[in-house]
C-alpha cells in the first residue's frame, strides 16, 4: 500500500437518523432505536417509583402524587405511543431477523424484487397495529375516564 493520506468518510450518526434517499424501513429502524431508548429510560425510573408499593398505602400514594398532573399524564401517553410502535415493529423485526418474512433465495431478475418488498406488507401491518394500539390507548387514557 502507498502512504497516500486517505480522507475519512464515514457518515457517522447522521447515517442513523438523517434524511436521504432512503426507504421507509430505515425510518422504522431509527424510530425503533429512539423509542427503545425512551422506553428504557422510563422503565428504569418506573421500577423505582412503583417499588414504593412495598412500603404500604401511604408511600404508594405519595409516589403516585409525585407523578400526577397534566405533564406527567402526557409523558405517560408518549411512553404508551412509544410502546405501541416498539412492540408492533418489534414483532415485525423478530419475524424478519429469524428469517421468516424475507422470502426464499431467488434468481435475481431485473427489476429486482428483494426481501424489502417481501416484508413491506408486514411493515405496513406493524404500523397499522401500532395505530390501533395508540387509538385504544388514547381512548382509554383521554376519552373514557
Amino acid at each position: 500500500m502507498s502512504d497516500t493520506k486517505h480522507h475519512p468518510n464515514r457518515l457517522g450518526l447522521w447515517g442513523w437518523l438523517g434524511g436521504g434517499r432512503w426507504g421507509m424501513e430505515r425510518y422504522l429502524y431509527a424510530l425503533h432505536r429512539v423509542t427503545g431508548l425512551g422506553l428504557l429510560a422510563y422503565f428504569l425510573l418506573h421500577i423505582v417509583v412503583t417499588s414504593s408499593r412495598a412500603f404500604g398505602a401511604d408511600r404508594w400514594k405519595t409516589a403516585m402524587d409525585a407523578v400526577t398532573g397534566p405533564l406527567f399524564k402526557f409523558g405517560e401517553y408518549l411512553v404508551f405511543v412509544a410502546f405501541a410502535f416498539h412492540a408492533a415493529n418489534g414483532i415485525r423485526l423478530a419475524l424478519l431477523e429469524l428469517g421468516f418474512a424475507v422470502g426464499e433465495p431467488i434468481e435475481p431478475v431485473y427489476p429486482y424484487r428483494t426481501s424489502v418488498h417481501v416484508q413491506r406488507p408486514l411493515a405496513i401491518g406493524a404500523l397499522a397495529l401500532a395505530a390501533v394500539l395508540v387509538a385504544i390507548g388514547t381512548a382509554s387514557m383521554w376519552l373514557v375516564d
Partner: peptide, 27 residues
C-alpha cells in the same frame, strides 16, 4: 449488528439482497 434498515438490498445493483442473506444467517 444488522437491524433491517433494508438499505443494502435496496441499493444492490445485482439483486443480491444482502439483508435477506443476513436474516437467514441469523436464523
Amino acid at each position: 449488528r444488522c437491524h433491517y434498515a433494508g438499505e443494502c438490498s435496496r441499493v444492490c445493483p445485482k439483486g443480491v439482497d444482502p439483508a435477506k442473506a443476513i436474516q437467514l444467517l441469523k436464523r
